[in-house]
Simulated assay, not measured.
Amino acid sequence: MTPSARITAELRERITSGDLAPGDRLPSTRQITRQWGVAMATATKVLTALRQEGLVEAVPGVGTVVRSVPAGELPPPGVGTVVRSASAGELPPPGLSAAAARRPREGSLSRERIVDAAVRIADADGMTELSMRRVAAELGVATMALYRYVPSKEDLITLMLDAVFGTVELIPEPQPVGWRARLDSIARIQWAAYKQHPWMAGALSFSRPQLVPRGMVHTEYAMATLHEAGLEPAEYLNGAVSLFNHVRGMAMVFADEQRAIQDTGLSADEWMQGNDSYYLEVMATGRFPMMALVSTIPEDVLTLESLFEFGLARYLDGLEVLISRR
């Protein structure tokens, strides 16, 4: 038995026996490589095989989890590799394995299918796990077949960004009244997209921006709003980019936290509780009186959401002063 088949069988047994319940998170590819001492390609094969069997699914910002399905749809405990029940017309032809029957022919590839697979991988495991080889394994084709449709990984990332922006509301409807409400609305649209696809924050570049037509709609909208409010070109350009940089900056913190949860299995609150004794020891030195003072404030006062809200409000307050001078 190959290493990938052995690990797949072990995880499958844990799922079918109920040791891993619906919604439970499976090890990421990185964790599989560390725990079982195998290559990344082997870890990729494991999760791909379990997804193809319908036992697991990718959840954005969480990772690969056990799929929530009726118990009768899962193979019984102790059964080896089993393909979910299918009608006679769906069974593989004689002599063709179930895995081979599921593997798409390279002729069925398209740019859209490649981009969709890449987004699923990034949503579940982050950009560090995304590679052309991983996408090819997800689709069951040779890696080189992808390059007929996507010239490079950089091009793939640009296409992924544009595809995601195509799934969100580009312009708020109905149109908010006033420049402040319009900028507030567009910022929240981006914030929601980043939280649904945490990898986007690190993939977008503000110093060397990719040509992402659907994403550029947001910048155009923000600049037009500030232009109508009376700002000069340099002002509304910097104003729009500064707004989205605040959203992206907070989104990168959000993405870091999601990765930390995946790697440690601990939420931020649980991690803080585990460091309480050390924190109290430091506070007892008396060197940080302001930190000691705010430590009595309820924990929900400082969250990622509160930081986003506070920063957005103060940014808009600053613009309001600038616009009033015009």
Rank of each mutant, 00 (worst) to 15 (best):
Y279T: 07
T42P: 10
P60V: 05
S267A: 01
G311P: 06
H227T: 13
R12V: 05
H197Y: 00
V38W: 12
A251R: 00
P70A: 14
S85F: 13
T143A: 07
A86Y: 06
L139E: 06
V46Q: 13
T42C: 15
T264I: 12
F254K: 04
Q35I: 05
A124T: 06
S295H: 02
A260P: 05
R325Y: 12
A145H: 11
G54Q: 02
P93R: 11
L312P: 01
R111H: 05
A313E: 15
S207G: 10
V38C: 07
D184H: 08
P176Y: 03
E299Q: 02
L183N: 10
S205M: 08
E138V: 11
E90A: 15
V294E: 03
R148G: 14
P209W: 10
V79P: 08
A101K: 11
E309H: 00
H218I: 06
E235F: 03
I114A: 07
A136G: 07
D300E: 11
V82Q: 14
T303L: 04
A145R: 15
G274A: 05
G18R: 15
R148I: 06
S131H: 00
R248P: 03
R30F: 04
T158P: 01
T81M: 03
V38M: 14
G37N: 09
L159P: 01
V46T: 05
T296A: 04
V65A: 04
W271M: 08
R84L: 12
A136N: 02
W271D: 01
I171F: 13
P209G: 07
W36Q: 11
T219K: 03
